[in-house]
Amino acid sequence: MNFELLTQLIVNGLIVGLLYGVIGMCFVLVYKSTQIVNFAQGEFLLVGAWVCWAALVYLELPFFVGFLLSLLFMAAFGVLLQMIVLRPMIGEPIISVIMVTIGLSIFFQALMKWIFGVSPQSYPQVFDNQSISILGLNIEMAYLMSTVIALFIMVAFYLFFKHSKHGLAMRGTAFDQQVAQSLGISVKHVFAMSWGIAATVSGTAGVVIGMVNGVSDSLSIMGIKVFPAVILGGLDSIVGAIVGGIIIGVLENVAEFFDSQYLHVGNMYDIAPFYVLLIILWFKPYGLFGTKDIERI
């Protein structure tokens, strides 16, 4: 057994898992506050990464200016999407709402392919040295940055929901829309804000992943890979999304390791999370931290 490789893979899994956690958090945020399952989550990553890439390459802006600009764009994008497309869908059956987000996902995926082409593009060099070694493990600079950003986003989420007025309003809306409305919270603003935040944070994750792997169509797969993570953690638990994300991130790397060493089935990295997903749905549909849906007649 090759322990060195295994440790390296587990560390990689932890780092990628943290990013899954961040994307999962956005997913849960949208689900909790607006009851919408966002199948277009991956396209937020895609749009964010491409916009930032365009700002850096076409406009030749310095990295942090371009990055901030793309975040602003994503916030506006999320809010507008909610206002134009998803506001008419309030109160529609679940299949309609799911299909609208699927429609959005197809549309933006094709649009990005149309505008930017299908071949992967890499970001201009941001860091001087590519990787550093910590405790004998090689870690790429971009991965390190992604970990720092992921942890920063998580702390920011915690502080936002615990202490800020808007965060409290969002938690109130998630708890009970009617009560929130009667206490003077504008549910409309909360809905728009949650989409704005989800788009911005997902866009950040898209830029970070794009810096490591290059920007391409495959970014939108992250939006689908986040489902196993979110279901494992429980659909309406933010902590669950983080825990689920880390577990899935480690699991896919470990599955890949055992597959390449012993099983030789192939493609385990992509498909293992979905087997896990089916098993969870079979035995514990509400995940590790999700609230159980109790029905009264």
Binding site: V85, P88, M89, E92, S96, M99, V100, I102, G103, L104, S105, I106, F107, F108, Q109, A110, L111, K113, W114
Partner: peptide, 20 residues
């Protein structure tokens, strides 16, 4: 080919909003 894909996405959204 991309326009075709986009049209499918748009058709889904438009029907769900205007003619569910």
């Amino acid at each position: 080919s991309y326009i075709k894909e986009m049209a499918i996405g748009l058709a889904i959204i438009a029907f769900l909003i205007f003619e569910p």
